[in-house]
């Protein structure tokens, strides 16, 4: 069953509501009341939540395009703060790539390109 997640997405994008910007790029930040904050690149099938922030910082100079460009592409594909996301599938080799449901779309991407997408997981 696919539950429509749109109803759970707040009107205002989540990242506006967070008073302080997320600073540590490496350690996932714990303690948000609803669940865990993780990089999309580390999420597993079945994980679902809301995109909190899309950054431009991982692997600078190693994407063939700049990190800013990668960020813009992610945003254009709908990886945007406030969007509901669920990890659907992963590949056989090194669990890569992943397929996600992003609001009403299904999108495939590689884990290394997903590092800058931070999601707040729903409690299981």
């Amino acid at each position: 069953m696919i539950i429509n997640r749109k109803n759970q997405v707040p009107d205002r994008p989540m990242h506006d509501m967070l008073a302080e910007p997320i600073t540590s790029p490496t350690a996932p930040i714990q303690g948000a009341a609803e669940g865990r904050l993780v990089r999309l690149s580390t999420a597993r099938p079945g994980d679902r939540g809301v995109i909190i922030e899309v950054r431009a910082e991982s692997h600078p100079g190693d994407h063939g395009v700049g990190v800013e460009e990668l960020q813009r592409r992610l945003l254009e594909f709908g990886f945007v703060e406030g969007a509901g996301i669920e990890i659907l599938h992963e590949g056989a080799i090194r669990r890569d790539p992943i397929a996600v449901r992003l609001d009403d779309m299904r999108i495939a991407l590689r884990r290394r390109d997903a590092e800058d997408v931070w999601i707040l997981l729903d409690p299981r």
Partner: peptide
């Protein structure tokens, strides 16, 4: 030897 380009793809219904 170059960097790996980002790859995003829609999975159509």
């Amino acid at each position: 030897r170059g960097a790996v380009e980002p790859f995003l793809m829609e999975l159509p219904t």
